[in-house]
């Protein structure tokens, strides 16, 4: 098939506007990793199941594997590379809340958004949000401690 399907898109990622040549069929995850070199969001299932590809769109967690890049036009995308010295990151380190680290960017994005949006979230809300991701290395108890310490500070 000829490459006539390529279009240009302007995406705001981590507070920078990026011009991107893309296919409408490209997912946001594919564009972040393949075109922008932002490999912090990870492919885990490409099916919306595992949460490793989670980024924030206007501050809300989104699984970037089940979102077309073009849908992000006009919105602010934040990836793990856009988080600098946040409490969430420090807390995940302090509480040994990761091992292999592959799911970690996804968990941190969800946790960061939760801390921003609902700093007083109760256990049920924390569970609801964090249940969107799979961690295969830790027991989740470590992640629970990390999240609790961030929300408790508020």
């Amino acid at each position: 098939m000829p490459e006539t399907n390529k279009k240009v898109l302007i995406l705001s990622v981590n507070d920078e506007d990026k011009d991107i040549v893309f296919r409408p069929a490209d997912t946001l995850l594919g564009v972040l990793r393949g075109k922008l070199g932002l490999t912090g969001a990870k492919p885990g299932c490409l099916n919306g199941d595992c949460g490793a590809c989670t980024v924030l769109v206007d501050g809300i967690p989104m699984k970037s594997c089940i979102m077309l890049a073009i849908e992000a036009e006009g919105h602010k995308v934040t990836t793990i590379e856009g988080l600098i010295n946040t409490k969430t990151q420090a807390s995940f380190i302090k509480h040994f809340a990761f091992q292999c680290g592959y799911c970690t960017p996804g968990f941190i994005m969800v946790c960061h958004s939760l801390a921003e949006k609902q700093p007083h979230a109760d256990k049920a809300v924390i569970k609801e949000w964090m249940q969107s991701n799979i961690c295969r290395c830790t027991s989740y108890q470590e992640i629970e401690e990390a999240v609790a310490s961030i929300l408790a500070e508020e």
Binding site: G48, P61, M62, K63, I66, M67, V110, W129, Q131, S132
Partner: peptide
Amino acid sequence: SKEIADHTARNK
């Protein structure tokens, strides 16, 4: 609704 898929997926 709260029991469908997961929270992040329900944002979409």
